[in-house]
Amino acid sequence: MDLQGDLVHHPHDAYRHLRDTAPVQRIAGATGEPAWLVTRYDDVRPALADPRLSLDKSHAARGAHRGLSLPPALDSNLLNMDPPDHTRIRRLVGRAFTPRRVEAMRPGIRRTADELLDALGTEGRTDLITSYAAPLPIAVICDLLGIPDDHRRDFRAWTDQLIAPDPSRPQDAEQAIGAMLAFFTELIAHKRRHPADDLLSDMIAVRDGDGDRLGEDELTSLAFLVLAAGYENAVQLIGNAVHALLTHPEHLARLRLDPSKLPRAAEELARYEGPALLAIRRFATEDITIADVTIPAGETVLLSLAAANRDPARFPHPDRLDLDRDTSGHLALGHGIHYCLGAPLARAEVEIALAALLDRFAILTPAETEPRWRRSLRARGLLTLLVDYKATAPPLP
């Protein structure tokens, strides 16, 4: 068995094998450095909330897998912090990124979805990733942050270069990081002078009861995180969900008949084929034992959300898509203090994207036999999703 290759090319099969034989396994991380991979639900869930597993890179031993390297002005984000810094920043962001704000965005998300579908016409073939699943989240995130329309294409290109860099052109990712840093620095300065009704303006203005506020690097890093994580997760949630329904037409038909089931269905679709194979890397602050394996202090721990979500000990028949399943406790968007800050927005986007698609097209069928998945140890998403569509049903015989 080529474990490293299978983890990228056939992740669910590889995770099944590891859950059964080696639930804590030493592997090479995405950039080649060693890390420990944890795959069972009963180990992954508590580890996500274990304070002995730090997100702070200062706890990493020499030579351990550390993940993406970013400039300091982009690195001061919630994915690299532990309490009390994490607690402070999350509290401040939470004052600006409220459930009320997300709820108020729903009509605008639906309008954008409808506009993208309008552009497809009433019949044809399209790559739904390019025409729908990708442009919808970038529009939502740019609206959320108050980014002008004429920069949306740049942001999509920059983010794609970070998510799926070309190994033969490492300079592209570096240039994308530099461009994003320069843009956000200028945008934050502009928002200070001309605040508007958007999340970035609110994050600049927000203070807690003691007058604390977000610093310049914290603001820049948070804007970068909202864009990169919000875009990537939503594209993959939408694309993976549509693909799962296309390959399970009986479920697609049920949702057409009763769209009220979409919120519950979205949870099962996220469990079944979530956007993240792995949670953000963690570093052991002391020797820690998981499933009878002792991980030395300073070494990197990778917690597999995808493996845990298909653990039969927690979800019976986990490889079966079941829209009636009790999905409570699924880990597609994390768990504990690092639970995805944008989870309510991600849920709204996938529910609205599916509702608009089903409302618009009475016929929606796959136009390719084998989907092309992004080759990644970390993320689970489609490169393309070719479909044939028609806005009206064919006449009865």
Rank of each mutant, 00 (worst) to 15 (best):
E174P: 00
H190S: 09
A205T: 12
K191G: 00
Q171F: 01
L116A: 00
G211M: 11
R169C: 10
L162T: 06
I138Q: 03
M180V: 03
H190N: 07
I204F: 00
G209L: 04
L136F: 07
L219M: 08
T159N: 08
T112R: 12
A119C: 08
L92D: 12
T220W: 01
P195T: 09
R153P: 01
L116F: 06
T98D: 09
A179P: 00
L136E: 03
R101Q: 11
A223H: 01
G94C: 07
E186T: 14
L181Q: 15
E232P: 00
P167S: 14
L214V: 05
L116C: 02
G108Y: 11
R152D: 11
A189W: 06
D118N: 13
A157Y: 13
D118M: 07
R207C: 09
V206D: 06
R91G: 12
R125P: 00
I163G: 01
D166P: 10
L200V: 09
R153F: 06
V206A: 03
I109N: 01
G124Q: 11
L92V: 07
T98V: 02
D114F: 03
A223I: 02
D114L: 03
L227C: 07
R100L: 11
F224E: 01
R90Y: 06
V140T: 05
H190I: 03
I177T: 14
V206F: 12
G94L: 08
G215A: 08
L162D: 02
T112G: 02
F155D: 00
F224V: 08
L227E: 05
P165W: 12
L162E: 01
L117W: 08
L219K: 03
D198V: 02
F155L: 09
L136H: 05
D160M: 09
L144M: 11
G215L: 06
R90W: 06
P148Q: 13
F184Q: 01
D202K: 12
I204A: 07
Y231R: 09
P170D: 15
P135V: 06
T122K: 06
P107G: 14
A182K: 04
L225E: 04
T185F: 06
I147S: 03
H190T: 11
W158R: 02
L219N: 00
M180N: 04
G124A: 10
A205F: 01
H151D: 14
A104Q: 15
R90T: 05
A139V: 04
I109V: 15
G94I: 07
E174V: 08
T130A: 15
A119K: 11
A157W: 12
F183A: 02
G209A: 12
E216L: 02
P195G: 04
L181C: 07
L145T: 02
A182Q: 14
I141N: 01
S201Q: 08
G230Q: 05
Q175R: 11
I89P: 00
T130K: 14
L144G: 10
R193E: 15
D143N: 13
